[in-house]
Write a protein that binds this DNA or RNA. Sequence first.
DNA 1: CTGAAAGCGCTTACAG
DNA 2: CTGAAAGCGCTTACAG
Lengths: 337, 337
Amino acid sequence: MAVTIHDVAKHAGVSHTTVSWVIHDDPRITEGTKIKVRNSIDKLNYHPNVNARSLIRGKSNTIAVIVYFFSSIFELEVLKGIEQYFDEIAGDYNVNIYSTRGNCKRKEKILKEILYGQRADAVIMLSMNPGNDLLQEYRKENVPLVLIEESIKGALTVKNDNIGGAYMATEHLIKTGRKNIGIVVGEYESDESGLSPSERLEGYKRALEDYNLIFNPDLVFTIDNYYFEEGQVALQFILEKEIHVDALFCAAGDTVAIGILDQARKSGISIPEELSVVGYDDIHAAALVSPALTTIRQPIESLGITALEMVMKALSGKKVAIKDIVFDQKLIVRSSA
Amino acid sequence: MAVTIHDVAKHAGVSHTTVSWVIHDDPRITEGTKIKVRNSIDKLNYHPNVNARSLIRGKSNTIAVIVYFFSSIFELEVLKGIEQYFDEIAGDYNVNIYSTRGNCKRKEKILKEILYGQRADAVIMLSMNPGNDLLQEYRKENVPLVLIEESIKGALTVKNDNIGGAYMATEHLIKTGRKNIGIVVGEYESDESGLSPSERLEGYKRALEDYNLIFNPDLVFTIDNYYFEEGQVALQFILEKEIHVDALFCAAGDTVAIGILDQARKSGISIPEELSVVGYDDIHAAALVSPALTTIRQPIESLGITALEMVMKALSGKKVAIKDIVFDQKLIVRSSA
DNA sequence: CTGAAAGCGCTTACAG
DNA sequence: CTGAAAGCGCTTACAG
């Protein structure tokens, strides 16, 4: 069906070896032969079978990016970052994006298939942990693995200073006179949760402690999917249960925080008078909602760019120091707190 | 290096053929042998080489999704749709997501590599046109190709009723008394632009015509990347040049429309009194900005779900009627118009 | 019930 | 300067 190297060889009147060498621009082939063969390639519309090539080379020229789910602008921005300089940094590689669709078994399957089934030559994982066993297997096989927003001993990591960011957010609320500060945060206890939720919780706790406020576990509200609607639900819950908070640090990000703002308006809660809200991410909408959202800005695209750079460096055989690369966060004060 | 089928065979004390058959659960193999072999597979942590398998099968069990760029929430939502029921609909397939990074040559290269290099067994394209030549090549090779938000004669298409949506938006502005209605729209003349911009422009024109307003080409403002900032720039341009408009239909989507709102606030233009704005998409932020954005809601996730269903149907050998599947749009009236 | 053999489409030493 | 041969890791008729 498809045109193979043999068809080209026959058409050009040479052996298939010669065709292969023309493709690889081997100096042993005369210019005349090259032209002849290239002509046949064009005429027959020949494209090498990627699978055969990868099989024999033992590498696929592909970088795999694994996301947990296409749930939020976070993924989008990181992917943008990875793409931004892709041609310059990783010209002859392809990117393949996989989603685990929130399934841990799938995650492991994908990671194993990539490693042992040779789907890709390197991996970038977003907000996900390969687990220690798989990490060791990757190291043994010498396949580069870079983690974004996740850290595990022995892995290459690019991340935000979530502890610092959460600290700043909480400190801001304290300094503006808030006493009962709740936190809305992603699931932080499961294996699948990624590191940032627990780090942000940690930063929140540290700030409370430094300012002599008591940490109250009842003021920790967790959400699962980082959806807008979960912010609405969280505030509904707080109001129904009559839980007393005068501020919410929405560590789960701006989209959820905006859900909180939305519910506040619907429930007649005035912001920031009755309730201060600080988000995380500084998405575009944060500046535009009413009241405008005070939030923490993180350089999301940079995470992607840096992760790709690390992967390429490792792929080129250079030693990459195993040391977390951490990006600073910035407090953006607007009207909501 | 990696464990092959031969290693498993040796470990289990059978031939590699037997191992292959165990993997495929061939009824000719006795249960005892199967257990023995599966044990070895687990012990050695064996995973079949995907490339070898694809090579021999002549198919890769992969569906390729091609996006133009990870630029907007639109891509994110479509991907969400494709994922949503993936396990149910397309259990043993993988998805690979490619981005052309806005490069037409890359697009063609990807499409040819998929087709002739056997990267994937079917393709879903987002807001992109394969071009007639490539479409014919896909049809000849019988590789399913489904287009989202793009239509070309002879291709399977899933799209929004952009003409209808734009008509509704424009009609709403007309009925609320606006006379000088501009349109902000994505690049619609280049090959790479996708179909929706020109369709939305068409809907806009038709509404003007039906209500006896003259179409003025000077009131068509185009943008390239669907970025927030482009909305700001567009309004700045209009103000600087003192172009007289009392309404803008931002067919380029809500993110850009919100950029317009932002610039309006900065420039002291009151919305909707001095300028009415209607967006397109109904993203979450649309309801939350101030003033809340009047917009057109489109079922983006459904596009992805339906496209995947069509691909799977075609892949299963069933005839799929070549007839555009068109989703209805809905006008959501808020405060900005 | 299991194995030896051919072959998928390519690459790459090895001859000539 | 070019070709015949072996092999990458699998699958699948074909024997036995």
